[in-house]
Simulated assay, not measured.
Amino acid sequence: MRRTMLFLPSNNPNMIGNGGLLGADSLIFDLEDAVSPDEKDAARELLKNALAAMSFGKCEIIVRINGLDTPYWQEDLRAVVPMKPDAIMPPKVSGAHDIAQLDQALTALEKEFGLEAGSTRILALLETAIGVENAYAIASASPRMTGLFLGAEDLTADLRCQRTKQSQEIQYARGRIVCAARAAGIEPYDTPFTDVQDLEGLEKDAAFAKGLGFSGKACISPAHISTVNRVFSPSAAEISYAKDVFAAIEEAKRQGKGAISLRGKMIDAPIVQRARLVLEAASEIEGVDYLA
Rank of each mutant, 00 (worst) to 15 (best):
R3G: 05
L6I: 07
F7S: 09
N14C: 08
M15E: 12
M15H: 05
G17I: 10
N18L: 05
L22I: 03
D30S: 10
E32A: 14
P37V: 07
E39W: 01
D41I: 15
A42I: 13
L46K: 04
A50K: 09
A52K: 14
A52W: 05
A53V: 10
K58S: 14
I62D: 03
W73R: 11
Q74M: 14
Q74V: 10
E75C: 01
A79W: 06
K84P: 05
D86E: 13
V93T: 13
V93G: 07
V93F: 00
D98V: 04
L106M: 06
L109A: 05
E110K: 10
K111W: 00
F113D: 11
G114Y: 01
G114N: 11
A129Y: 04
V132P: 06
E133W: 07
Y136I: 07
S140H: 11
P143I: 06
L148W: 07
D154G: 02
L155D: 12
D158G: 00
C161H: 03
R163H: 13
Q166D: 14
S167F: 07
E169H: 02
I177D: 05
C179A: 15
A180I: 09
G185R: 00
E187V: 07
Y189S: 11
D190K: 08
P192L: 01
Q197D: 15
L199D: 10
L202C: 11
K204D: 04
D205L: 08
A206I: 01
F208L: 06
L212W: 10
F214S: 05
S215Y: 02
I220L: 14
I225E: 07
S226Y: 05
V231F: 02
S240F: 01
D244M: 12
A247W: 06
A247R: 14
I249L: 15
E250K: 15
R254A: 15
Q255T: 12
K257V: 08
G258R: 12
A259D: 06
I260N: 13
K265L: 00
I271L: 15
V272G: 02
L279D: 04
A281H: 13
A282L: 08
A282D: 11
S283W: 03
S283T: 08
E286N: 14
D289Y: 08
D289N: 15
A292G: 14
